[in-house]
Design a binder for these strands. Sequence first.
DNA 1: CAATCGGAGTCAGCTGTGGACAA
DNA 2: CTTGTCCACAGCTGACTCCGATT
Length: 908
Amino acid sequence: MSSSDDDQPLVRTNGVKSQDRITKNVDRAMDKQTPSNGHIEPGVSIRMGPVEDMDVDVPLTNGNVNGKRKSRVSLTNGKSYKEASSSEEDDDKPLSKRRRTFQKPKPSMKDSDSELSDVPLKTRKPPKASAAQIGEESDSDTPLNTRLVKEKQAIERAAEKTAKAIRNKEKAAGSSKRKPKAESESDEDVPLAKKKKQPVKRATNGVKKNESDSDIPLSTKKMPAKKPKVKSEPSTPAKNAKAKARQEETEQDIEAEEDEEEYRWWEDPSKGDGTKKWTTLEHNGVVFPPPYEPLPKHVKLVYDGIPVTLHPDAEEVATFYGSMLNSTHNVENPTFNENFFKDFTTYLDKTGHGKDKNGNTIKIKKFEKCDFKPIFEWFDSERAKKKALPAAEKKAIKAAKDEAEAPYMYCMWDGRKQKVGNFRVEPPGLFRGRGEHPKTGRVKKRVMPEQITLNIGKEAKVPEPPAGHRWKEIKHDQEGTWLAMWQENINGAYKYVMLAANSDIKGQSDFKKFEKARELKQHIDRIRKDYRKDLKSEKMADRQRATAIYLIDQFALRAGNEKGEDEADTVGCCSLKYQHVTLKPPNYVIFDFLGKDSIRFYDEVQVDSQVFKNLKIFKKPPKTEGDDIFDRLTTSALNKHLNSYMPGLTAKVFRTYNASWTMARLLKDMKSTGTIPEKVKDYNDANREVAILCNHKRTVAASHANSIEKMQEKINGLRYQVWRTKQMMLDVDPKIKKKKGAEYFERPEDLDDEWVKQHQEALVEEQRQKITKKFEKDNEKLKIEGQKQMKEKELKERLEAIDELAKKFKKENKTGKVEAEGKGPSVEKYEANIDKLNQRIETMKVQMEDKEGNKEVALGTSKINYIDPRLTVVFSKKFNVPIERFFSKTLREKFDWAIKSVEEDWEF
DNA sequence: CAATCGGAGTCAGCTGTGGACAA
DNA sequence: CTTGTCCACAGCTGACTCCGATT
């Protein structure tokens, strides 16, 4: 679309989000810092079932046999819930998913390809219906038929299990690579001898031989490599000093690293090709969330008016809900409540529901009768208490936590110290799926060590699991960049502990991403030519593909993979449905759908007439609501095609390319002049354009209108000041009126008499407040110092100045003249003042525009993920704006490679 | 000292890849 | 043998929330 970039009406509305910005969150279970360190040290027992209890099934779960089902088995929680999950809880949702794949032969496209043209395709019947009937009993079950369903599930499960067992056997027999048993391996795998190694190394260091085996191995390891300067650094012997020194320590570390070797991986040709990501890898594992701390006795769930005592396990689940009552967004979502209560009920059933104060059992049957308020209030008060703590105490708590976590913060990756990203295991809670996620509100279980696989170097010491527990598995996968991994119980999704964004490995892949996007530049012309041609292809599949690429290229749509029924119903390009695209002749198209994160994508655009025609064909009957527009296209087919132009080219590269390219174009013809804030705004304007392209939205803050108004008032106040100063000029030298022209001295029209009056009053009031406050404060001080306080009379005296001011204003209003103020008034002085004021006005205006423009656009995401950081660096150098104005500290670290690698003539 | 604001952290959402297996 | 499909896994993306510095 040649012209289209200008004419996007951009009616982008934010369809989804509610305004619940009552940011007043009670700490989540996790934050509820226990006085201990917030992590479970080896040796501290978490409330988990005995090990044996937990993995009867583990041997089956060898390796990656079948993730989905595996999840059911291996994610089973400790003993208390054991039966719950294995008997009726629908952890086996995945089951239905699998079934679906069996039952629902994807209406295949292979036949169709050969016949071409615009013949209406055999509309792909959304397999949904059948799938729903088959697999979803579990999903749709109403309380009534739960029992039936459960039985059914039990049967299915049994069948599954045997099937799996068989498969496993075959696997074991066939592929051999995997060990047949998980049980022994973790321990056997790691020869004890190796474990012993570490202490020896430690000794070399000559530092204390503390047995807590915290960060020592890591930092020590580094020492031999770099002898001279480092010696001062990790050896901070005294524990307490250490906490305090941490800040500097890390800083030093980074510095040390920088000027020592100044390893520029982006210039290292040996980097970035192979799949082997590391040779040696040492780390200390993960930090577990603190164990559940039961509520105090007087805080209880109230059911039907009766306070009930719950088993701690059930109580914990109740607190998940109770602690988020303020999150109306979730708590008012029926699906959320339904899912929560269903899961809550299984916990209750397992633990015998609740007891009233006489010990009588209270059955909790109805969500509506549950009152979580007492729980909420307790959390609220706890939070307040914590907040009210004296600063010193807060600091101490933080220091303790930091110290406890220190060993986990960094790892040694090929001998280089690297920051770990998310070393904390996700705490249990309620799953907060976004949009209309069918599983939102379900209980996300506590992750046990037995579920966690570690990835670590063969030579490295395997971190101790918490006492009484063991790791699921120890791997030495050098092609993986993760340190630890587990599977979550809601969707069976895999969670990884990886390095932080500022690590070499992440930097490298980021770098590669942008290099790939730049490479696309070389091919884009050909690709565009081809898809324009293919828009008219005889082959339906080709035509659809071309149209899709067109959309992805022009409007930065995401690829749009197929999604299952147990996920929120959101789409991208390839999964666009009939109802998401509206055609408006002659050649306008309206997109309206929920994209990633259930963020609404609404855009009315002009398209190539052939594209318009094609879309019309793709929507032809019998297709209707719910049918795929691109029924002959999958993301993998699309990507495969793209790959033929350039290795590694996929749909998402277009997003990066278009974002960076847009930014590059905008910055290139920019002749940013003026003050630094103005230049920053210019940059932000460009950034914003990219963000809009990528549809990065955010909810307008509730306070937005208010703060804009405030700013405007401030500006007006300044403008008034300017006018007054001008009048003073006249007072000093009336002849100046002729010289500057009468216009110069006129009051801006919008600052009418009414406004002036109000403003003056506000000013007077403000001053009054200020003086009064000052007075009170002074008095307060005197009181503390034990001196006698000032009298009311003093205050009155002080306030007299204000009355003067008010009088002065009145007089001004009457005469229309302003007396000169200040000592030694002169025209020149006033001119200088005016200049200063105008300067301030300009700055404020710029800030305000910036703010207004940003109210519903989030700049951060595109800055972090899509805009080649080197562009920003170039801008910063070219226009002499410190890079700090664009990149925060963490971003500077993340983009270190970019900052160091380009000069101002670099081009995307 | 409270309110505000940007930065950092969290965790759900989505894309992409390679191997197993089926057609 | 080729091609398509499914699945597990890996890793990037992105809104939201929390937190701490600032004013």
